[in-house]
């Protein structure tokens, strides 16, 4: 049975039929009003009981299911289908796009190129629209605010060819810095391209070794060595890295110069190269911090 017919029957049986004493014009107006109201998209569930709607709109199987659910006193799953129909619920209006996650950096807003009258750079002072701008090269902060990390256990003298991990220590000021010499030494730079703070302090194991390393490492980060050593490290001994030399001075066995020169000490450490074990020896003139001899000798124990 069509639903409209039932609706009409319900309308006329609801007692809204005007009395015969009403004028015809008012009757016609009322009829149109009632018909218009009946044609509106009012949910049927509001005007009819749920069981009636389910019995009218669904097939027999669903009607039996509904009846069984109703007899057991449980809420029926078909109620949602009857109330909402087969049409999906209306979608909410689109949410405006959110800003990217993370903290809002005021410098990005400050350097926003989309603003009219913007000048690239950082505003130094004055009101926001002041033309005090200057190009700025920003270096990202790679440090930490958590303080120095705990010092790992001290490394035993061993493979000098393998570079050792830098031990973080508080920065230490150098008491005196020798004047720079001609660039005949190999550079010793930090990981970020700039000279790290206190390389001698990170490599030194004792106060005396740290003092020697402070004289061995120049201000610009190069090693203080003679031209002979620099020439050899650029030639037949180029496989010896600078870090191994520093490790040998920091952790190696210290002995007097075998040739007995005053102020010179030989640092020896076990090393290996291409599977050949040997000893890396570094002769240092400690008063000046000049490295005067570097040699890896195979088949010799330190």
């Amino acid at each position: 049975m069509p639903l409209s017919g039932r609706r009409g029957a319900n309308v006329w049986r609801s007692g809204e039929v005007p009395s015969p004493s009403v004028p015809p014009s008012t009757l016609v107006t009322g009829i149109f009003t009632v018909v218009a109201l009946a044609a509106c998209s009012t949910p049927r569930a509001l005007r009819a009981p749920v069981d009636q709607v389910s019995a009218e709109d669904l097939d027999g199987h669903q009607e039996r299911v509904f009846a069984s659910d109703k007899s057991e006193g449980r809420p029926s799953r078909t109620i949602v289908l009857a109330a909402g129909g087969s049409r999906p619920p209306p979608r909410p209006p689109p949410v405006p796009p959110r800003p990217p996650p993370g903290r809002i950096d005021p410098r990005h807003q400050e350097n926003d190129h989309t603003r009219p009258g913007h000048v690239p750079g950082r505003r130094l002072a004055g009101p926001p629209d002041a033309p005090y701008w200057e190009p700025v090269l920003e270096i990202p902060w790679r440090g930490s605010l958590q303080g120095p990390k705990p010092t790992p256990p001290q490394r035993a003298p061993g493979e000098a060819v393998e570079p050792a991990l830098p031990t973080p220590r508080p920065p230490q000021q150098r008491p005196s810095q020798p004047p720079p010499s001609p660039a005949t030494q190999s550079p010793q730079r930090g990981s970020n391209g700039t000279r790290s703070v206190g390389p001698a302090a990170r490599s030194g194991t004792t106060v005396e070794r740290t003092a020697v390393l402070e004289r061995v490492i120049r201000f610009e980060g190069a090693l203080n060595m003679s031209r002979t050593v620099a020439r050899q490290l650029a030639g037949q001994r180029s496989f010896i890295p600078s870090q191994s030399i520093l490790d040998t001075i920091a952790f190696g066995v210290r002995a007097a110069d075998p040739q007995g020169v005053a102020g010179q000490f030989m640092y020896r450490s076990a090393a290996s190269f291409n599977g050949s074990r040997g000893t890396l020896g570094v002769l240092v003139h400690e008063p000046s911090g000049e490295i005067r001899h570097v040699l890896f000798q195979t088949g010799v124990a330190p």
Binding site: S226, R227, T228, R231, D257, Q259, V261, Q264, L283, R292, H293
Partner: peptide, 12 residues
């Protein structure tokens, strides 16, 4: 050492 001045300064 190929450098005469360093041979004079460093006896090794």
């Amino acid at each position: 050492s190929p450098f005469r001045d360093e041979r004079a300064r460093i006896s090794n």
